[in-house]
């Protein structure tokens, strides 16, 4: 369990983290969501003891990270944004070194490493040089490193960034399997990624917590705000006026237009009573404006924050 209370971290005049508080419960996967530069990595660095906060406290299973750093750090396994890997060591040498660092005793070491290696599935690269591994394997070695010493909490900073889709799926599976026995904080700037694995989400923006919510609540909140992208063959001005007149449409803004087609971005009010998409379809059919493209838009995180903070 981690209790984070009013964290502030200042760099010069800028506050990278400005009063963040939240709690991570036991055996919970917490998504830590925010756009690039929101302060995710700084917050995680403070939680793991890499940085000290300008003010505020972090308690890991009751141990303050500044006052009892060794006890607190024993509880945490950390995979930073750039995995701390030595390219000139083999995976075996590296994990042995991490065992030394975390004080894993000789007799427990072999068993523990065997378990971790099979869990993160790196046995086939166990004796290879880390520098020669693919990005996905490096990431897994990074996760293995974090698991050494059996910490009860894993903190993973953007574990899937830079991986190809197959690797992302693999890592997600891995995180799901780890979630059974660990509290996990996983950060990302992609909402869908978090939705897959997390029980609860903390969203931060510009160094502040924008929202703390369970995934299902968040979905509900976000579904109240959805957007459609419509491209059709027809006049823009007329189309715009007609669509704005439809019930359920909050606003419509032109995106692209040329002689042959018009593209609109349409915000709809989510009241479930009227399906705006149906009425748009019939409108187009009635006007004989062929639909070239018609799909719903994922809201960007910024929009989510705007939306969340607007309420």
């Amino acid at each position: 369990m981690i209790e984070i209370n009013n964290l502030v971290k200042r760099y010069g005049d800028k506050k990278a983290v400005n009063g963040i508080s939240f709690t991570v419960n036991d055996d919970e996967v917490l998504g830590f969501l925010g756009p690039n530069g929101a302060g995710k990595s700084t917050t995680m660095n403070i939680i793991t003891g890499y940085l000290s906060s300008t003010s505020g406290t972090v308690k890991v299973n009751g141990h303050d990270i500044l006052e009892e750093p060794e006890l607190a750090k024993k509880e945490i396994g950390y995979l930073p944004e750039n995995p701390p890997l030595y390219n000139d060591m083999t995976v075996a040498e590296y994990l042995d070194f991490v065992c030394d660092l975390k004080g894993v005793s000789r007799d427990k070491r072999k068993k523990q490493l065997e378990r971790i290696v099979s869990l993160v599935r790196i046995s086939e690269v166990y004796n290879r040089l880390i520098g020669n591994l693919s990005k996905g394997y490096k990431q897994r070695v990074g996760i293995a490193q974090a698991m050494v010493g059996n910490p009860s909490i894993l903190i993973l900073d953007e574990p899937t960034v830079g991986l190809d889709p197959n690797q992302i799926i693999e890592i997600r599976k891995l995180i799901k399997s780890l979630a059974k026995s660990h509290s996990i904080i996983i950060s990302s700037h992609i909402l869908s990624e978090i939705q897959e694995v997390a029980d609860r989400v903390v969203i931060i923006n510009k160094g502040k917590v924008a929202a703390v919510d369970t995934i299902s609540d968040l979905s509900k909140r976000l579904s109240g705000q959805s957007k459609l992208l419509l491209t059709f063959k027809g006049p823009l001005k007329e189309g715009l006026a007609k669509i704005r007149a439809l019930p359920g449409v909050q606003s419509a803004t032109p995106r692209l237009t040329d002689n042959t087609m018009s593209q609109l971005e349409i915000s709809i009010v989510n009241d479930n009573s009227a399906d705006v998409r149906t009425s748009i379809f019939y409108l187009m059919a009635k006007e004989s404006w062929p639909i070239l493209e018609f799909r719903s838009l994922d809201p960007s995180l910024e929009e989510v924050f705007l939306n969340i903070t607007a309420r």
Binding site: N45, T48, G49, Y50, P69, E70, L71, K73, K74, I76, Y78, P80, P84, V98, L101, K102, G103, Q145, G149
Partner: peptide, 8 residues
């Protein structure tokens, strides 16, 4: 170096 700061 992060290993030195975040391990006990």
């Amino acid at each position: 170096e992060i290993l030195y700061y975040t391990t006990p």
